[in-house]
């Protein structure tokens, strides 16, 4: 599946319009401790986190993640969305919680 497929479910809102949506999603990772995520998440993953500050973009870029998903109606900080657009990392928001997002991925992947 690709990042674009998330939009087709109508359950995710893209928070940085203009970003590339063609990247494949090959894994899913859930975590909020950045050092832990840095040492465990795989590249080309969709990362589900409640962190909304700018440093999540650095983590996503360094690990070559495919997108970031903010659960439970969280929104990225304004400069986070801007930085993510510059770095071409899609950020989605959704009303689903992390478990519900993971279940959705299980059906789609």
């Amino acid at each position: 599946m690709t990042v674009k497929d998330l939009l087709e479910t109508k359950k995710f809102n893209l928070e940085n319009e203009g970003v590339n949506l063609e990247n494949p999603i090959e894994d899913v990772y859930i975590g909020d401790l950045l050092s832990w995520v840095m040492s465990h998440a795989n590249k080309k993953c969709a990362w589900i986190t409640v962190q909304t500050h700018m440093n999540i973009v650095a983590v996503a870029v360094l690990l070559e993640m495919s997108c970031i998903i903010l659960p439970e109606d969280l929104k990225p900080d304004e400069n986070t969305a801007k930085k993510a657009l510059e770095e071409d990392i899609p950020i989605f928001s959704t009303s689903l919680n992390a478990y519900e997002i993971a279940c959705l991925f299980k059906d789609m992947m």
């Binding site: 909020d32 401790l33 950045l34 050092s35 832990w36 995520v37 840095m38 040492s39 986190t49 962190q51 500050h53 440093n55 999540i56």
Partner: peptide, 12 residues
């Protein structure tokens, strides 16, 4: 709260 300070930086 920002997700830092897990005490994993130097060990990592």
């Amino acid at each position: 709260e920002m997700g830092f300070g897990a005490g994993m930086g130097l060990p990592n």
